[in-house]
Simulated assay, not measured.
Amino acid sequence: MRLTIFWQRMREEFGEAYADSFARDHVMSELGGRTVRQALDAGWDAKAVWRAVCTAMEVPAARR
């Protein structure tokens, strides 16, 4: 998954403002105690990060 698609899905799911806030501030155990931004900066695959977000936030399967 390209980062542009990842961020598009984040904005669609959480809204323009909250997607960025969530990515910067929400530490996730699914990402090894990292935020979304930290995981991406550390080289995690965007698709793996998206899956972790979906799991943690219980995003319905139809929107994953």
Rank of each mutant, 00 (worst) to 15 (best):
F22G: 05
F6Q: 05
G43Y: 06
R64T: 09
R34C: 05
A48L: 09
M10P: 09
H26S: 06
R63C: 05
A48P: 00
P60A: 12
R34I: 01
R2C: 14
P60L: 09
A42W: 02
R24L: 12
G15V: 13
A61G: 06
H26L: 11
A19E: 10
D45Q: 04
G15D: 11
W7Y: 12
R63T: 09
V53S: 10
E16G: 10
A61K: 08
R2P: 15
Q8A: 13
R24S: 12
V49I: 10
A52F: 01
Q38A: 13
T4I: 14
Y18N: 14
F6M: 07
R2S: 15
Q38Y: 03
G43K: 06
W7S: 03
K47W: 06
F22D: 05
D41K: 06
A62V: 12
A62G: 05
Y18A: 13
W7L: 06
M1E: 12
W7A: 00
S21H: 14
V27F: 01
R37P: 01
T4H: 04
G32K: 00
A46V: 10
L3V: 06
P60R: 11
L31N: 02
R2F: 10
I5P: 02
S29F: 00
T4C: 11
V53F: 04
G32F: 02
V53L: 10
D45F: 02
P60T: 08
G32H: 05
M10I: 08
P60N: 11
T4V: 14
V53N: 07
R64V: 07
E58N: 13
E13S: 15
R9C: 09
A56L: 07
F14L: 12
D25T: 15
W50H: 06
S21Q: 12
S29A: 08
A39W: 01
D41T: 01
A42E: 07
G15I: 15
E58M: 08
L3R: 11
S21I: 12
A56I: 04
E58H: 14
S21G: 11
A23L: 08
V36G: 04
D25M: 09
E16W: 12
A42F: 04
M28F: 03
A62N: 08
A42R: 04
V36I: 15
E13Y: 13
D45W: 03
W44R: 03
A39E: 04
P60E: 11
L31H: 01
V27D: 04
W44V: 04
R37D: 08
A48M: 07
I5G: 03
S29L: 06
D41Y: 00
L40K: 00
R9A: 12
R51M: 04
M57G: 03
A56Q: 08
R37H: 09
R24T: 09
H26C: 07
S21E: 10
R34L: 05
C54Y: 08
F6P: 06
Q38P: 03
W44I: 00
G32D: 07
E16C: 15
T55C: 05
A61F: 07
A19N: 09
S21T: 15
A23C: 12
V59T: 12
G33I: 01
V27T: 06
G32R: 00
E30Q: 04
G43T: 11
E30L: 01
G15K: 14
R64P: 08
F6N: 01
D25L: 10
V53E: 07
Q8W: 13
C54L: 05
G33P: 06
